[in-house]
Computed example of a mutant assay.
Amino acid sequence: MLEVIGLVKKYGKQNAVNDISFSLQGGEVVGLLGPNGAGKSTTMKCIVGLLRKTAGEIYIGGHDHLSVAAKRYFSYIPETPSVYDLLTVQEHMQFIAQAYAVPDWKQKAEELFEYYDLNDKKDKLGRDLSKGMRQKVSICCALLPDPQLLFFDEPMIGLDPKAIRNTKKIFKDLKAQGKTILVSTHLIDSVESIADRIMIMKDGNIVGNDTLENLKRQMVEAGYSLEDLFLELTKDE
C-alpha cells in the first residue's frame, strides 16, 4: 500500500531525513515513534506531498505519491489541525464529500459527529473552534471519504480522554476493514495497544523496525519494557 525508497530530505546541508526505506502492507497499523526532531513529521509530509523530497521514490497503491490516483487512496491528519475559518463544521464535511464524490455522506457525517460529540458544534465556524475541536473535525473529514491509507501525525495531542479512546477504537475498526494506518507519535502508550509494527526514528534514521510481538518478547527476555527500548534506541551517544 505504501513504499518509501531511499527518502532524503535536506534543509540546506542538514539532513532531516537520511536515506530511509520502508513499506506498509494492507491492513497494517504501524507506529512511527521517535523523540521531537527525529524526522517523523518531515517524513510524513514528504509522503503526502506537503514537502518536496530531496531524493528517493514514494509509491501509494502502486502510484507515484504526487499523482491524483495516489491521492485518492489516502487521508492525512496533521499534528496542527487546519480548518477553514469561515466554514461551519457541517460545511467542512460537505466540502470534503463534494471534493471526493462521497455518496450518501450526510448519514456518515452524522455518525462521526455523534462519535466525537460534535452534534452541538455543527453550525460553529472553524475560527471559533478550540484546538481539540479542530482536531476532531480534522479526523472526521479524513474518515469521511473512506480512504484505504491514513496518516495520523500526533493524533492524540489536544484530544480529551473520551476522544482518545474513540480514536483508538476507530484505529481497530479500520484495521479490521483492511485499512492501512501510519501513526507518528512520541508517546508510546498511544500506539502500543494498536500497532502491529513499530518503527523508531532518531536523527533522520530508522533505528528500529519490528513487529510489536517481537519487540515485546525481546524486552521481556532482557527484563525491559517497550518504553525502555525506545529510550535506549533514541538516547544521545
Rank of each mutant, 00 (worst) to 15 (best):
E237G: 08
G27S: 06
N209D: 15
E232I: 13
L187W: 13
I20D: 00
E91M: 08
P145A: 01
Y76D: 05
M201N: 03
A69Q: 15
V8I: 14
K169C: 00
S130P: 08
Y224I: 03
V137Q: 05
Y73D: 08
E111T: 12
T234Y: 06
V220Y: 14
D123G: 14
V89G: 03
Y59P: 01
Q94I: 13
S138R: 04
G6V: 02
I200P: 03
S225M: 13
M156L: 12
D104L: 10
G27Y: 04
L149R: 02
R134I: 02
P161E: 09
D160E: 09
L149D: 00
T180N: 09
Q14S: 13
M219T: 12
D236Y: 13
S75G: 10
F113V: 02
G56V: 06
K10F: 06
G178W: 09
V83K: 12
G37P: 13
A99N: 12
A195S: 14
D146G: 04
L51T: 08
I181V: 09
D123R: 15
A101M: 14
Q218R: 14
K235M: 11
H186D: 03
I194G: 04
S130L: 11
Y224V: 03
Q94C: 07
K175T: 08
G31I: 04
V191T: 05
G132F: 02
A69R: 15
K9W: 06
G158W: 03
D85P: 13
L229S: 07
A195V: 06
Q90T: 14
A16K: 10
E237K: 15
D173M: 09
N18S: 06
V29T: 06
A163G: 03
V137W: 02
P78K: 11
K162V: 12
L159M: 12
K235W: 05
D189G: 01
S67T: 13
E232M: 13
L231T: 11
G37E: 10
A142N: 13
P35G: 02
I77T: 13
I206S: 02
A163N: 09
I200R: 05
A97P: 08
G6Q: 05
E79A: 11
N166W: 06
G27F: 01
D117S: 14
E110D: 13
V17E: 00
Q94T: 15
A99W: 10
K45V: 10
F151R: 02
A38H: 04
G158D: 04
